[in-house]
Each structure stands twice: as structure tokens, then as C-alpha cells.
């Protein structure tokens, strides 16, 4: 089956760099603005920066929840980037509790206060990865670019994770079968990020 990557644009965050990366990798892609536009897509990327609360509400209101769950349950590849990763979890706690997609169990909370580690966490930091297919060809502890103040707290289930240290060790990457979340921005992380995106499209289904 011919691969085609959907890049979701619901109006939170800059999707230009993600498009740029997929185009650079010479893969067919489509910018998806409505939940009824997923036909013919084999892969889906959910980028996002900004407020979890606002984004999660918008996703729900615009009818994305059942559609994304169906896409994932059909075994098609889904990747959330930055806040897009956080949205895959059950809930976020920015300005009260908001419901997320619930594809991963757990929640998303602000980092614990630590005066030596200012928020947001911005810049390149290392990811200790799990050597799964999507990490093929990427040296362990490679640097990836982060911009975030919240991090996910998964509850125990069958997931493989990547770990990053910023005052505390946090989950910077997560995968469960065909569903992936990256807290960092692969599209802004040099070659290593491009390889990750390439593996996502080429090695996952």
C-alpha cells in the first residue's frame, strides 16, 4: 500500500517545519484540517505547541476523538509531537483537568519546581532510547530539541519509553504498537530527528 502521511493542522502550533521535514524525506503528505479527511492516509502526525487545555477542548469539540481512536485502533501509525504527544494521554492538568485522547494511560503535569532548572525546558537535551524500530540508526543519547513546561506521567502499561534528564528523569518518548509520542521536536533536531521521522513513515507498517 502506498504510504501517505497526514499532518493535522487544527490551529495550534507551527506545522511548517513538520511539512518541511516530510517533504525533504520525499514522502507523500497531506495537511488535514478536518476529521473527515483521513481517508487514504497510512500515517498521521499530530503536532502542537501551546496550551493543552485549549487544544484538548478544540480537538474534542471538532470531533477528532473518535476519528483518531479509530485510526489508531485500525493499526495505522500515529505520532504526537510535543503537545501533540501530551494530547494522546488521558488528561492534562493545566488550568484544571482536561480530557485528552486517552490512547496512552496517564496524565500530563507541569514539572516539579526546581530553581536550577527553569521552565520552560528549552534547547537540545539527550534522549536515552529503547532501541526499537523507530530508533533504527540513531545513536543512543542523541540530542533532540525541546520546548515545554509540562511532561507526561504514564501509568504502567505495555509501552517502550525514551528518557531525558532535566532536574528529574522524564518520559520524552513513548510507544505502544503503532502509537508514538515525542516530547521533543524531531523536525528541528538535525539528522537524528529526520531519521526518526523517516523510520516512522518507512518502518512502521
Amino acid at each position: 500500500m502506498k504510504k501517505k502521511v497526514g499532518i493535522i493542522d487544527v490551529g495550534f502550533g507551527n506545522i511548517a517545519s513538520v511539512i518541511n521535514a516530510i517533504r525533504f524525506l520525499k514522502h507523500d503528505y497531506k495537511v488535514v484540517k478536518q476529521p473527515n479527511e483521513l481517508k487514504s492516509l497510512t500515517h498521521l502526525i499530530l503536532p502542537g505547541v501551546g496550551s493543552f487545555n485549549k487544544a484538548a477542548k478544540k480537538l474534542k469539540k471538532n470531533g477528532w476523538h473518535p476519528v483518531l481512536k479509530k485510526f489508531a485502533n485500525e493499526g495505522k501509525a500515529l505520532l504526537g509531537i510535543c503537545m501533540g504527544m501530551q494530547l494522546l494521554f488521558e488528561e492534562g492538568t493545566e488550568h484544571g483537568t482536561t480530557e485528552g485522547l486517552g490512547l496512552f494511560k496517564g496524565r500530563c503535569e507541569i514539572f516539579k519546581k526546581n530553581k536550577n532548572f527553569p521552565l520552560p525546558h528549552v534547547g537540545f537535551n539527550l534522549v536515552q532510547h529503547s532501541n526499537t524500530k523507530i530508533w533504527n540508526g540513531i545513536i543512543n543519547y542523541s540530542p533532540f530539541y525541546f520546548v515545554h513546561s509540562y511532561r507526561v506521567l504514564p501509568t504502567l502499561e505495555k509501552t517502550k519509553v525514551g528518557i531525558t534528564d532535566y532536574g528529574e528523569k522524564f518520559i520524552s518518548f513513548i510507544e505502544k504498537k503503532n502509537i508514538f509520542g515525542a516530547q521533543f521536536h524531531p523536525e528541528k533536531s538535525h539528522r537524528a530527528g529526520l531519521v526518526l521521522l523517516k523510520n516512522f513513515v518507512e518502518k512502521i507498517r
Binding site: I139, R191, A192, L194, V195
Partner: peptide, 9 residues
Amino acid sequence: LVQFKKIDL
């Protein structure tokens, strides 16, 4: 500084 490595695409 983080070390960026050369990787083939």
C-alpha cells in the same frame, strides 16, 4: 555542549 553526530539518512 551536546554532540551532534553525523548520521546517514
